[in-house]
């Protein structure tokens, strides 16, 4: 029981971290990024490459990979997605367009990864030391990943609630039409939020690569889970991400331990539908659309 709960907490922390990046991209920049998981896998491969090729510690690798992804995501938004934002007349139109565009992007990133690495599964052994926590044995790398996820989540929360730029980002999330009236540069902040989301997912990718096996095609699963967590928690809401992510991780771990490991996706969907039928705007969402 304790073991299942601990596994669930670690997993849930990861889901929450992944979802926080997506909620920035979707809640603020209004880009429904279906290529999101591909960026996670991309940085997992980058970390693998650094570790096996140059023996770079993944935690050090973070310092390289995260800023690079920030810049890549920023450019992606500026060059590639801005035309769609300009073309869209309504928010719904932008949603559909961004779904389709990032869908194509998903194939491109996946295709590049496939040609580089093939369809095989990859993993590396880093900090695979057993540690005893409340009477249960866990791998060190999972604990480190969890701790870093907590740190990153807290930093993001403080940035968004305690700084001026964070406040303006939240203002864009709440009402993009009125934000310019108080001298907020919406396009610039949207690009920034999209890039921050890219940086977050890259850090999640590095952390996950330390303890999970991954392949060029496993990004879709992460996209799906991130989307489920974001929608369940309420779009654009960090606390929602945390609660929904934990809920998802715990229920997955419990079902895998006590019922059947082959039913995790069914659990995801049951939770997703259950929450949405009771609260269509998500656990922490406000108002109905």
């Amino acid at each position: 029981m304790t073991n299942a709960v601990l596994t669930g907490l670690v997993l849930g922390g990861m889901y929450a971290l992944i979802a926080m990046g997506l909620t920035l991209q979707y809640g603020v920049a209004r880009i429904m990024n279906l290529a999101y998981g591909e960026f996670l896998i991309g940085s997992a491969f980058a970390s693998y490459f650094l570790f096996t090729g140059w023996a770079v510690n993944p935690l050090v690798g973070l310092i390289v990979i995260v800023p690079v992804s920030f810049v890549v995501s920023f450019l992606l938004y500026k060059i590639f997605l801005t035309p769609l934002v300009r073309r869209a007349r309504t928010r719904d139109a932008l949603e559909v367009d961004s779904i389709l565009a990032t869908f194509g992007l998903m194939f491109i990133v996946q295709g590049i990864l496939l040609t580089m690495f093939g369809g095989a599964y990859f993993s590396y052994s880093f900090l695979a030391i057993p540690v005893t926590v409340v009477g249960e044995v866990l791998a060190m790398n999972r604990l480190v990943a969890f701790a870093l996820a907590v740190v990153l989540g807290t930093v993001l929360y403080l940035l968004l609630t305690r700084t001026r730029i964070g406040t303006s980002i939240r203002a864009v999330a709440v009402d993009p039409a009125s934000a310019p009236l108080v001298a907020i540069n919406v396009p610039q902040l949207s690009a920034l939020a999209f890039a921050a989301g890219g940086a977050l997912v890259a850090s999640a990718g590095v952390l996950i690569s330390m303890f999970l096996t991954f392949s060029a095609t496993s990004g879709v699963v992460f996209t799906m889970k991130a989307l489920i967590v974001v929608v369940m928690g309420g779009i654009g809401n960090l606390m929602g991400c945390l609660v929904a992510g934990m809920l998802l991780g715990l229920s997955e771990a419990l079902v895998a331990t006590y019922i059947d490991p082959g039913l995790t996706i069914a659990v995801n969907f049951a939770l997703f539908l259950g929450v949405l039928l009771v609260r269509p705007a998500g656990i922490f969402g406000r108002g109905g659309r």
Partner: peptide, 9 residues
């Protein structure tokens, strides 16, 4: 897969 993505875009 790559070409499919390009066609899509």
């Amino acid at each position: 897969t790559l070409i499919m993505g390009v066609v899509f875009l």
